[in-house]
């Protein structure tokens, strides 16, 4: 299972890198989304994929799940949700204001003497 997850994460990171290297802003945003998905999956996988009863609520179960990775991943998901939505709104605003979503045309060259 871990091997499968490793491949999934690898593919996610790969596609994210590919998308983030493209010129269109929207593709870049999708790329960042994939990147954070990959990071979250990695967090969950690294902490060990196992079954078990919820901890703290009982003392008889044979094995317990580790609650920490779940808490971490939830936090990380919420944060990336916030950042992605901010980025989307910003990209939309930038497109309206600057009239382009091509990263090549968003270079800061003016006034750099």
């Amino acid at each position: 299972m871990e091997i499968l997850m490793a491949f999934t994460i690898g593919i996610l990171f790969m596609s994210a890198t590919y998308l983030m290297l493209s010129k269109s802003l929207l593709r870049i945003i999708i790329g960042t989304g994939l990147l954070s998905h990959g990071a979250h999956l990695l967090l969950l996988t690294m902490a060990g994929l196992k079954r078990g009863a919820p901890p703290l609520l009982g003392e008889e179960a044979a094995s317990y799940a580790d609650p920490l990775p779940q808490a971490l991943i939830l936090t990380a998901i919420v944060i990336s949700f916030g950042v992605t939505s901010f980025f989307l709104v910003l990209a939309y605003r930038a497109y309206q204001e600057l009239g382009t979503d091509n990263m090549d045309r968003l270079r800061g060259t003016e006034g750099n003497d």
């Binding site: 960042t32 967090l43 996988t45 902490a47 990336s80």
Partner: peptide
């Protein structure tokens, strides 16, 4: 965003 994703990855490895 990229550095934050790397941060999460690093924390995952460390954990």
């Amino acid at each position: 965003i990229i550095s934050s994703a790397l941060f999460v990855v690093a924390v995952g490895y460390l954990y």
